[in-house]
Each structure stands twice: as structure tokens, then as C-alpha cells.
């Protein structure tokens, strides 16, 4: 009974209930929503947010934050497009170059946060401006029209987002694979344990010889890599490379991470929670669109969801409705800019 209680009375269960409620409500408003095919293919719309939030959770668990994910999507997209079209590289190499771009951006962020000790919020803020600027420069310098972007990608590339395997669209499979990787990495490996420990108490971790700086930097590299994967999927889905892809995704990504139960001050969170939250946030947007709600209301809704979920989480833990897990007491200061 106790074991059952431990498994049921968790934040993730609340999220699952939220997901079911969401599907039920939207299903009532628009019965098409309940169609399995529609649900599966709807993932295409928000898979980018979910992929990035899976690995941004790593960054947030160490106590930092990474708001440059959206810009890295744009930069990756442009790099792939420009290398393929202007430099004549084959699409596979261009894609790998795109992935490398994401990892490099992540390494750039991570180096400044971990080794130079600059605050995560500012580094990723500057990084966001810098990466989106680089995307614009690449577009401008290569003579491509910024509005049209680069299109006409080969069929193999379009299959990444367009194809499916036994009826399940590829992006869903990609998301599932990344979810498995993130889950194993965070919860079943030594590395994952170190990520948590760095978030719970960076000083103690440092004195214990945990290699805090390399752990922190690696989380940013993972986050950047995830963003570049999302960028490639999005470019394939839209059939064109543009420098402003992913520009407005910062809010949904942070919402998905916070809603997923990751504490902003670090040390607490699960990949399962973030994955479910990513789906909840994405389905919210998709469902509202299907219900005919204009995108402005969706932004308001996402913002309110962020605030409400953060408040409820904080309150729930204070009133001890949900059992507190390892370490990391409730954030007394709540100062977002201070951490990291």
C-alpha cells in the first residue's frame, strides 16, 4: 500500500491526470481530436518544444537555465540550408554540421557558465541574441532572401519529419528515442547522479571532487545538441530553412520544464515529468488551435499555465501534499537571477 502510494502520489501522476483531462475536454469540443491518427500527427507541431525541454531539464537540474534553444534551432536550420544549397555539401554532411553547430553553441554557453562563472540567465540571453544574429548574418552573407529562406530539400531529408514507420510518424519515434536516452542518462547512470548532486549543492559537489565544471558544461552541450536535432526536424517538417525558426519557443520550453516538476533552483526533477509536461503544453496549443482559438489566447494560456504550475508546485510542496524527495529544500529566496 505504501509502495502504491509512493508511485501514485507524485507530480507525474498529476500531470497524467492533466493530460487525460485535456484530451477529454478537447475531445468534447472537437470530436476529431480523439482520433488516434490526429493525436499522433499533432505531435509534429510541438515535438521541437518537447525534445528541447527533455534536455533543458538537465541544465535546470544543475541550477542553471538555457533560453537560447529557440535561436539554436534557427541557426541550425540556416547552417544546414546554406551548407547544402550554397556550399554544395550533401545533405547528410550538412545535417551533421547542423548537429555540430548545436553542440558548439551549447559548449559556448556551457563554457561561459561553468568555467567563467557567469550567470546562466545572462549567458544564454546573450547567446540567444548572438546565435540569432549569426543566423541572420549567414543568411545575409550568403545572399539568400531572409523571407523566403532555403527550400527544395531532397526527399530523404523530408522523410525525417514527413515519413512514418508502421503508422507512427517519424518525429514521434525520434522523440521516443530521445526520451529513452534522456531517461537512462539522467536516472540510471553515474553521470545523471552527478547532475543531480551538482544541482543540490554545488559546493559540496565540488569539494567531493565531482568535476562540477565539466558536468555543468556537458548539460549545456546536451541542450544545444537537442536544440539542433529539433531544428533539423522542424526544417524537414516545414520544408524550408529560415533564420527565425523557433524564435517564439522560449516560453513553451520553460513552461514544459517547470510544469514537468523540475525545480528552477535545481536538484529536483524527472525526465518522465518533463516529457508528459511537454506533451501537455503542446497538446494545449494544438487543441486550442483545433477549437478555433486564436494564437494570442494561446500565448496567454501558456503564460498562465507557467505561473499557475509554478505556484501550485511551490504550494503543494509547502503544504506537504506530495512527498518531498531527495535533498534541495524549498527555494526560500526564489530569486531566479541569483542562481547559476
Amino acid at each position: 500500500m505504501h509502495v502504491l502510494k509512493r508511485y501514485l502520489l507524485r507530480w507525474e501522476s498529476v500531470l497524467v491526470l492533466l493530460l487525460i483531462a485535456e484530451i477529454a475536454i478537447f475531445g468534447r469540443i472537437n470530436p476529431r481530436f480523439l482520433n488516434t491518427r490526429v493525436l499522433l500527427y499533432s505531435v509534429n507541431d510541438f515535438v521541437c518544444v518537447s525534445i528541447i525541454s527533455l534536455f533543458m531539464a538537465f541544465v535546470v537540474i544543475t541550477g542553471g537555465i538555457d533560453i537560447s534553444g529557440g535561436s539554436i534551432i534557427g541557426l541550425t536550420s540556416v547552417v544546414v540550408g546554406v551548407l547544402w544549397k550554397q556550399a554544395g555539401l550533401d545533405i547528410v554532411s550538412a545535417s551533421f554540421a547542423g548537429l555540430a553547430t548545436g553542440a558548439l553553441c551549447g559548449a559556448f554557453n556551457g563554457f561561459l557558465v561553468a568555467f567563467a562563472g557567469v550567470q546562466a540567465m545572462v549567458v544564454t540571453l546573450g547567446g540567444m541574441m548572438f546565435f540569432s544574429g549569426l543566423a541572420l548574418v549567414l543568411v545575409g552573407v550568403s545572399g539568400v532572401s531572409a523571407f523566403e529562406g532555403i527550400s527544395g530539400f531532397p526527399d530523404g531529408f523530408m522523410e525525417i519529419a514527413g515519413g512514418d514507420l508502421w503508422g507512427v510518424p517519424n518525429p514521434v519515434l525520434i522523440f521516443a528515442a530521445l526520451f529513452a536516452v534522456a531517461c537512462v542518462l539522467l536516472h540510471c547512470t553515474n553521470y545523471g547522479r552527478r547532475v543531480f548532486l551538482v544541482g543540490i549543492n554545488p559546493n559540496a559537489a565540488r569539494y567531493s571532487g565531482l568535476g562540477v565544471r565539466s558536468v555543468v558544461m556537458s548539460t549545456y552541450v546536451l541542450s544545444g545538441l537537442a536544440a539542433s536535432i529539433a531544428g533539423i526536424v522542424l526544417t524537414s517538417y516545414l520544408g524550408g530553412a529560415r533564420s527565425d525558426l523557433g524564435a517564439e519557443l522560449t516560453l513553451p520550453i520553460v513552461t514544459a520544464v517547470v510544469l514537468g516538476g523540475v525545480s528552477i533552483t535545481g536538484g529536483r526533477g524527472t525526465v518522465v515529468g518533463v516529457a508528459i509536461a511537454g506533451v501537455v503544453v503542446g497538446l494545449l496549443r494544438f487543441g486550442l488551435q483545433m477549437a478555433g482559438v486564436s494564437s494570442q489566447y494561446i500565448t496567454v494560456g501558456t503564460g498562465m499555465l507557467l505561473v499557475v504550475s509554478a505556484a501550485v508546485r511551490g504550494l503543494a510542496f509547502r503544504v506537504s501534499l506530495l512527498p518531498r524527495r531527495s535533498g534541495g529544500g524549498d527555494n526560500i529566496k526564489g530569486g531566479g537571477a541569483r542562481r547559476g
Binding site: 537555465i65 540567465m121 522560449t250 516560453l251 520553460v254 513552461t255 517547470v258 528552477i264 533552483t265 500565448t299 496567454v300 501558456t302 503564460g303 498562465m304 499555465l305 507557467l306 505561473v307 509554478a310 505556484a311 511551490g314 509547502r318 524549498d330 527555494n331 526560500i332 526564489g334 530569486g335 531566479g336 537571477a337 542562481r339
Partner: peptide
């Protein structure tokens, strides 16, 4: 007790 980044990000949205 909502962290400032989260709160103001939500308000922004």
C-alpha cells in the same frame, strides 16, 4: 515563492 524568471516569463506571455 515563484522564482522571478518563471514569474516574469509567465507575465510576459
Amino acid at each position: 515563492r515563484i522564482p522571478a524568471i518563471v514569474m516574469t516569463l509567465g507575465t510576459m506571455g
